[in-house]
C-alpha cells in the first residue's frame, strides 16, 4: 500500500484533551484516519484510547467542564469539528459510534435500526423499511431477525444486540464509524462475526477501532496506533507495528511486557 493512494478522512492535529477534573488525558495527539481503512487503537488500560475515540464524535460535550484543545479536522470539508461553530449533532450524523457494551434502546428491533433516520425526520415508511433491511443485512443480522422485527431488542443475545447496534449505526450511511472495544463483551463466535463484519465494511467506510486484543488488531486493521499514558507513541501500517515497531514501548506492549 503506497502512501500515495491514501486520502485522509479525518485527523487529529496537536490535539489535547482535559477532563472536567483537570486531568490532561490526551497530549499533543497527531493521528490521521485514512479513508476506507481500518485504524486500530491499542495501548494499556487508562492510556486514553476511549477518550480519543470519543473526541471524534464530540461525545465529551455531554458532560460539562470537559475541554478540547487543538484540532480534529474532517475531510473533504477540511473543517475542525471541535470548532465552537460546528454543531456536534451534525458531526454525530456523519460519524457513528458502536460502544463496548451493546446498548440497544427499549424499542423493537425495527425501531432501533430506524432510530437514526427518525431522528433525522424521515417518515417515509417504504424508505425506512428498505434502509432497515439494508442495514441489518450489512450487519449480518437480517436472516436471524427478519421474522421478528417487532420484537423488543432486549430479547436478542449479546452478540446479536451488538450487531443490532452496528446496524443502527450503519443505517444512516455514516462516513466514519468509531468502535470502542466492540467485542470485549462477546464470546469468541460472536467476536468472529463482528470481525468478519468489519472486514466486509472495509473499503466502504472509515473505521477507528479501540481494542485490547492484539490478535484482533492484527487481524482486522490496516493501520495501528499505539498509545501510552495519554501520548500517541507510534502510528504505522499494522504489519509494520507488529513486526518491527520503532519504539521500545510499543514493542514491550505488543510482546506482552506491559499490559
Amino acid at each position: 500500500m503506497a502512501n500515495a493512494d491514501l486520502t485522509t478522512k479525518a485527523e487529529a492535529r496537536d490535539f489535547n484533551f482535559f477532563y472536567s477534573n483537570g486531568h490532561h488525558a490526551l497530549k499533543n495527539i497527531n493521528l490521521p484516519l485514512y479513508e476506507n481503512k481500518i485504524t486500530a487503537l491499542i495501548g494499556p488500560s487508562g492510556c486514553g484510547k476511549s477518550t480519543l475515540l470519543r473526541s471524534f464524535n464530540r461525545m465529551h460535550d455531554l458532560y460539562p467542564g470537559n475541554r478540547y484543545e487543538g484540532e480534529i479536522v474532517m475531510h473533504p470539508d477540511n473543517t475542525n469539528i471541535l470548532d465552537a461553530n460546528v454543531d456536534p449533532i451534525e458531526v454525530r450524523m456523519r460519524i457513528s459510534m458502536v460502544f463496548q457494551k451493546p446498548n440497544p434502546f427499549p424499542k423493537s428491533i425495527f425501531e432501533n435500526v430506524a432510530y437514526g433516520l427518525r431522528v433525522r425526520g424521515e417518515k417515509n415508511k417504504r424508505l425506512l423499511a428498505d434502509k432497515v433491511e439494508e442495514a441489518l443485512k450489512g450487519a449480518a443480522l437480517w436472516d436471524e431477525v427478519k421474522d421478528r422485527l417487532q420484537d423488543l431488542a432486549f430479547n436478542l443475545s449479546g452478540g446479536q444486540q451488538q450487531r443490532l447496534c452496528i446496524a443502527r449505526a450503519l443505517a444512516t450511511d455514516p462516513e466514519i464509524m468509531l468502535f470502542d472495544e466492540p467485542t470485549s463483551a462477546l464470546d469468541p463466535i460472536a467476536t468472529a462475526n463482528i470481525e468478519e463484519l468489519m472486514n466486509d465494511l472495509r473499503g466502504k467506510l472509515t473505521m477507528l477501532v479501540v481494542t485490547h486484543n492484539m490478535q484482533q488488531a492484527a487481524r482486522v486493521s490496516d493501520y495501528t496506533a499505539y498509545m501510552y499514558l495519554g501520548d500517541l507513541i507510534e502510528h504505522d501500517k499494522t504489519g509494520d507495528i507488529f513486526i518491527k515497531p520503532k519504539d521500545k514501548r510499543t514493542e514491550d506492549y505488543i510482546t506482552g511486557r506491559i499490559s
Binding site: 464524535n57 455531554l62 454525530r92 450524523m93 457513528s96 437514526g116 431522528v119 447496534c165 443502527r168 444512516t172
Partner: peptide
Amino acid sequence: EGAYAMGAT
C-alpha cells in the same frame, strides 16, 4: 450516549 451518538438532540 447511544442516542446522542446517533445524532439525537
